[in-house]
Design a protein around this nucleic acid. Sequence first.
DNA 1: CGCCTTGTTGACACCAGTCAATTCACGTGG
DNA 2: CCACGTGAATTGACTGGTGTCAACAAGGCG
Lengths: 184, 184
Amino acid sequence: MSVRSNIFADGRRQISAVHITGDFVDLHGFLLETMDHNVNALSAVKVAFVPHTAIRAITENEPHLTRLLWLLTLIDAATHRQWLAAAGRLLAAEQMARFICEMLTRMEAAGLVDDLTFSLPLSQIALGDALGLSTVHVNRTLQDLRRRGLVRWTGTTVTVMDRARLEELGEFDPAYLNLVRMPR
Amino acid sequence: MSVRSNIFADGRRQISAVHITGDFVDLHGFLLETMDHNVNALSAVKVAFVPHTAIRAITENEPHLTRLLWLLTLIDAATHRQWLAAAGRLLAAEQMARFICEMLTRMEAAGLVDDLTFSLPLSQIALGDALGLSTVHVNRTLQDLRRRGLVRWTGTTVTVMDRARLEELGEFDPAYLNLVRMPR
DNA sequence: CGCCTTGTTGACACCAGTCAATTCACGTGG
DNA sequence: CCACGTGAATTGACTGGTGTCAACAAGGCG
């Protein structure tokens, strides 16, 4: 698992994405001239590098694949809008609920969830950087969610205890993730 | 000029983009299944509609054009990251300074700036929705920037009085906009 | 065993939100 | 030409969510 972040001159940091297994990391870099952000691993990762020449070749010869790659970056952008809305307009608890819902849903789509439980190796410091909160407030907000019986988060293991109420609190709608519809 | 926004159930609103003359509005909609946001005009606008079939045809036959269209959405995404970082980690005055710097720079690139002055038909309510602030705090923050001699903002007319200090305050670097370099 | 990072807690400060009232700019209709 | 209505801008008083500072506990690791 890895994160994309921006860092300000005085050290303030904002994480703008959490990448999980199977994600295409920084496909944006293919066409953007400058990389204005960092990528850091949160856990041991296996990485495959794709040369820009290969992607360029795809864009020359494979319109369908090109549209799929483009779509990946559009989903990223849609996710950014969701994070922005959450950062700008939601209370800490609502925002954190929404974040956990998103991670749960994406991990599910990757087949990495078992019994509403998944691994999320984010320290409270990093979680704060993702949500735009101080670590102290992250700690208290997490306790709040725990006390309400919505989540359990010990170490790097997260369990969603009450998915419906957590999604309601975070006003979460997974539509923006454009996931393939799974048969129930 | 128009804005793209997300609205929460209780009416809270977050603006995620301000479109100016020449911008391709919601090119994202070409490949995304669901439109999870609204677009509202701020002023009288002239609109050209591009059928998805036309864009699809471009992706089939014009790799270079396709990459350019893709690039437009990547710049959008990069801008979202910048807004997110600002919303999450900057103080109101810093964030507002940065926003004004971005609008100035983009309006310049569109040839719509004269003497560091440009038209920005955003009410303080809308400005608050863009920055994630209440209108009262927007008002006070604007007064702060005015008092410091950084900007003049009367009605829909904005004048940047001290560009260097405004950019410094907002820690603004236009690189993410990927603008074509103009000869001075 | 001791260092270092992370998690936790309490006290306090402060940035930003809320509520409410007032002023101002405009556009409309009489 | 003026009364009026409406939305935006402004202001003051107060509240409250979140940040800061500091201390301490709990593990992981060399």
